[in-house]
Design a binder for these strands. Structure first.
Lengths: 156, 156
DNA sequence: CTACTCCTTAAAGTTCACTTTAAATTTATA
DNA sequence: TATAAATTTAAAGTGAACTTTAAGGAGTAG
């Protein structure tokens, strides 16, 4: 089964010019061409695109993904470098998840803060609330955040 | 206690030109100036910077953060819009964490794959391994991933 | 007072990842 | 076979978030 660039665009959600751009940058070296130079994508190319998508989501830049593909093409002599690459990237994603969880804590606190403020029609009243008046989860969150967000005292 | 821009740069890890850029974009409307127009940061400004950092980590763009700050300045009539903003952002961070966890699954699988390949000096041998020879966790991961990554069949 | 460091602004430059445009070619449809 | 739709390339343009440069002003140590 062969796919045109439009088919692949629909399947992946990536615009056709983006696929051409990836190809130009060397991310799709396995895509075959028909007589007139038209790209003929195979299932294997779709798998590569999924891997590329994952590596991009992990924070790798286009040039780093190209580097990985170049190493892959070079064969088993580059196994160690590719291994190192994945370990580095795994660590980086773990850190990013940790950071986002902290960010989520702040957002959860803010959502409660504004829910309550909207209810009272007034932000100050919530800022003046003692921690004991807050739901236990929120109190816990606020302690965890270590710094007061937009409390009257700290944010004029 | 007042801080110069260099103090704040050291405290936050943000380069001084970045802080000036944020100020220019309207993200630091509360920072006072001394006689010669020199910025004098207070503790409250550091708190604002932490909130900005958090909002940036959540995926908000500079102009969106400015929008939030503008709403904050407008006062209680904008409580509802600010509330909506935090809910939208919370959902977005939850989605991002989910995506990153899937990405982490692929990377974990790849790390095992390359650990084993480096050990054997050969990637094909690992690709040809039956799932029953894999550690249970890896087998589970591979099933979860739904598509084979760089197996001989699928990636030429 | 001088020298030095740090601060200021405006404006131009950079990097990244596309996105758009234009012109030509190929393929599919009537 | 004519025409319309889709494909190709190279090159220019875009937007976001800085970063660098240049030129000048402020604060401090000797």
């Amino acid at each position: 089964m062969l796919y045109t660039i439009k088919d692949v665009s629909k399947k992946t959600g990536l615009p056709a010019p983006t696929l051409r751009y990836y190809d130009k940058e060397g991310l799709l070296p396995f895509v075959n061409r028909g007589n007139g130079g038209i790209r003929r994508f195979q299932e294997t190319d779709l798998v590569w695109l999924k891997v590329i998508e994952c590596l991009k989501a992990s924070g790798l830049q286009i040039k780093d993904i190209k580097r990985y593909i170049d190493l892959f093409i070079q064969g088993d002599e580059t196994l160690e470098e590719r291994r190192q690459m994945f370990y580095t990237q795994k660590e980086s994603v773990e850190k990013e998840i940790k950071l986002l969880k902290e960010t989520l804590d702040l957002l959860t606190y803010k959502c409660w803060l504004y829910d309550t403020a909207v209810e009272l029609g007034n932000l100050e009243a919530v800022e003046n609330m003692s921690e004991d008046e807050m739901p236990p989860q929120i109190k816990k969150l606020k302690t965890k955040l270590k710094f007061d967000c937009c409390s009257k005292k700290e944010v004029p």
